[in-house]
Simulated scan of single mutants.
Amino acid sequence: MLRLKDICQLIDGEKRNGKGICLDAKYLRGKSSATIVEKGKFVYARDNIILVDGENSGEVFTVLQDGYMGSTFKQLWLSSAMWKPYILAFILFYKEDLRNSKRG
């Protein structure tokens, strides 16, 4: 039996200092301009991040540039053994269930 944790996991991202773009939801959706921050949890271009708080919990973004995740994000690690579009479709399909089952 394959468990969800075997194909994807939420991780914190790399804590780092130095100027970089804040990758918050509004910016990633194209609804605001870039904000520069001095430190945070760094992710690289092509990494996946997922909203873990608020009404849009479960929304996944593929980062187009290096930067710092917004405070309501976690980095989404996806196993290379699985087809990425399948995992993302699975998350989207069960988004409501995943949102309602989160703790803490």
Rank of each mutant, 00 (worst) to 15 (best):
R29K: 15
K41C: 10
F42Q: 04
Y68M: 02
G70Q: 02
N48F: 15
L92S: 15
T72K: 13
I49Q: 12
R99P: 00
K102M: 10
K31N: 14
R46E: 13
P85D: 05
I87V: 15
L28H: 04
L64S: 11
L4E: 11
R3A: 12
K5G: 04
M1N: 09
V52N: 05
I36P: 08
S79H: 04
A89G: 14
G67S: 02
E38Q: 12
F61E: 08
L76D: 07
D53T: 07
G20I: 05
G54C: 06
N56I: 01
M1T: 06
K74D: 08
S71Q: 11
S101R: 09
A81F: 09
V43T: 06
F93K: 13
F73I: 01
T72Q: 09
E59Y: 10
Y44V: 00
K5D: 14
D12G: 14
L2Q: 12
F90D: 02
K31S: 10
I36F: 07
I87Q: 00
L98Y: 03
M69I: 02
I87H: 00
M82I: 15
Q9S: 12
L51S: 08
D24C: 08
S33E: 14
R16D: 02
K5E: 14
K39A: 15
R29W: 00
I7F: 15
S33R: 11
G18K: 01
V52Y: 03
A25W: 01
W77I: 02
E59F: 11
A45W: 01
